[in-house]
Structures are given as C-alpha cells and as structure tokens.
C-alpha cells in the first residue's frame, strides 16, 4: 500500500501549523488589545473560511494564483514557478482556510489573561515586547498549544481546498483525505479503512489533549 499521501499530509500540516502560529499569534494579540473601529471588519473577514464552502474559497484562490493574475505573474517573475497544483500552492490555501481555527482560540486565550498581569509587569520595568514574551506567552501556553493542535488537525483533514488548488498528484499534492476518496472510488475499502481509521483515532486523541489542557489550566488559580 502506498503511504505517500500520509507523508504529504503530515508535511503539509506541519508547515501550515508553523506558518499559522507565526502569523496568528501577533494577529490574535492585536485583535485582543485593539479598540480600532476596523476590528469587526477584520474579525468578520478572518472568520470567513469558517462558513464558506471550501470550493468557493478554492475557486477564488485558484483565480488568484493563476499565471494570468497579478499575484500569479509576480510569483512567476521572481522565479518560483506556478502555484496551482504545487505543494506551495496547497500550503498557502490551507493556511488561509485554517486561519480562524488558530486565531480564535488564541484571541480568547489572550483576552482571558486580562490587563492585570500586564500592568503589574509594566510597573516592574518590563517594556511592551518584554511583557509579551515573558508574561503573555507563558500565561497563554495552554491556548497556544490548543490553537496549534486545532490548526494541525484541521489541515490534516483538508479535502475540498486541496482538491481545488492542488489536484491529485501523488507524492506532491495527494493528501490523505484525497487518497481516501480515490480508494473508495476504486472500491478498495481496506486501504480506505487504514487511512480513515487512522485519521479518526489521531483526531480524537488530539482533541482529548486540547480538552485536557483546558481543564488543567482552569484548575490553576
């Protein structure tokens, strides 16, 4: 049995999770602190992938990445080739699709910390960046871990967007969910069971970890 789709999925989920954590941590922090009038607009925009069908998101991303578009031409002109049907293409698409799954738990985690420890740190000579790294991030550790797990699992189960952008290229863009679809189409239920069962078990234990973390952090004072 060919397990290359498992490797592609794990690689995709890891890269996307890494990017999401780097992008969403400052974004969620800004959202938790800002009083800007643009906040509802930006929040609504960021939550769009939660409600849009993956095909709609995939369709527009495909147009955006096509070699005819401004973005596609720019990407090609700096010598990186074309995005559709490439691993980079599905990384970008999955990052956008999983964004709200990471931003929202982070934002509520930051909001729950409140301004009290920050003010205390400010009176103890800690500047804004120092406060973020030495007070906020350590206190938000359960939220950070939870958000990362959620982003990872959501990307691991990605189907529609990957199919729209990446297609079905073995070893490059064929992920587990697409592979399961192929096996079922070919009536190879045994192979489908291995992959599907694996995803079910993995997702369950990942969620168990998140809820376990939440409970532990709530027990702390």
């Amino acid at each position: 049995m060919d397990l290359s789709s498992v490797a592609v999925s794990l690689k995709l989920a890891s890269v996307v999770t890494l990017i999401l954590m780097l992008v969403c941590t400052p974004l969620a922090w800004w959202l938790s602190q800002t009083r800007s009038k643009f906040k509802p607009w930006i929040s609504a925009l960021l939550a769009m992938p939660l409600v849009l069908p993956p095909t709609v998101l995939g369709f527009y991303l495909l147009l955006l990445m096509s070699p005819q578009s401004f973005f596609g031409q720019f990407y090609q002109s700096i010598g990186l080739g074309t995005l559709p049907f490439s691993f980079t293409g599905i990384v970008i698409a999955c990052t956008i699709h999983s964004l709200p799954f990471v931003v929202q738990p982070l934002q509520s985690g930051f909001e729950a910390i409140g301004r009290e420890p920050l003010e205390a740190a400010a009176t103890l000579r800690a500047g804004p960046i120092d406060r973020f790294f030495k007070v906020i991030l350590p206190l938000a550790k359960p939220s950070l871990l939870g958000a990362a797990i959620l982003g990872f699992c959501h990307t691991l189960g990605e189907f529609g967007v990957v199919l729209m952008i990446g297609g079905n290229i073995q070893g490059s863009t064929r992920v587990m969910s697409v592979d399961i679809y192929n096996h079922v189409e070919a009536l190879d239920y045994a192979s489908a069971h291995v992959l599907a069962g694996g995803l079910v078990a993995f997702s369950f234990f990942a969620l168990l970890l998140i809820y376990g973390l939440n409970q532990r952090s709530r027990l702390l004072p």
């Binding site: 009290e116 420890p117 003010e119 205390a120 740190a121 009176t123 350590p138 206190l139 550790k141 702390l220």
Partner: peptide, 14 residues
C-alpha cells in the same frame, strides 16, 4: 522609577 502595589496581589501564575 516607581513601585506599585495593586488592590489584588496580581502575582504571575507562571
């Protein structure tokens, strides 16, 4: 150059 004591202790939980 101040020291500030709040109403509640506000110790760092971590």
């Amino acid at each position: 150059e101040i020291g500030y004591v709040f109403q509640e202790p506000r110790l760092f939980a971590h």
